[in-house]
Amino acid sequence: MELLSLLTPGPTGWGDELLIGLSMTLGLALATFPVSIMLSFLIHWARSSRRRPLRYLAQMHVSIFKSLPEILTLLIIYYQSQVVISWVADYAGLDSTLSISPFLAGLIALSLVISAYGSEVVRGALQAIGKGQVEAAQALGLSRFHCFWKVVLPQFWRHALPGLGNLWVILLKDTSLVSVIALSDLTHVAALAINTTREPFFFYLVIAAIYISLVIFSSWIQKRLERRAARGFVAGGRAHA
């Protein structure tokens, strides 16, 4: 009971701080996800491009960011961009105390990592849709934009949702890494709370429970979205109902 009173909001409890940490975690994940999906498409297009340098660059992106530990990517992005920013600021004669926020560094690093995996999800989903749809759209005289927007993309979600759901869960858990560069997300707030209360087991168990409920809630949402994306399709078959 004594422990539970630590979770109340107000000056003695940590409930409100944890809530702010939770919103930071969710905010970072929600901001990163759309960016990484768009980046995934760009990388997939570069990988299947006719230009060789573009193909090599995209392939390198995937190999590098799938091989590096996320935490290393994060630290490199964080420190290197500080250096680059102060260098540019010096050169342009601006205020050299400019720095990159941990939030932005986390957003960039996580987008790079998630998009490396995401490009494979995009490739798989586009392959599942098949070339026939694109050819039919071209035969109808649709522009490339309309072909993608009106024909490919609506069918894309049905095939991509399981993979994207997986990536979302990975992203949600990877946001905990930004606590290392002092963004006050859930994990960081827990560390602060432990510094004053000396209850590490309790607080880490609480935020573990929060992460687990977020993951369970996400997979529930994912199932609903999958059902919605598959509407009009006979279960298990390719035929249109």
């Binding site: 858990k173 827990a190 573990a208 687990i212």
Partner: peptide, 17 residues
């Protein structure tokens, strides 16, 4: 369901308690 980082802290700092 939990990040490895949290599990790590749970084992390492939690055990100290």
């Amino acid at each position: 369901g939990m990040p490895l980082l949290v599990l790590l802290f749970l084992v390492y700092y939690g055990a100290g308690e």
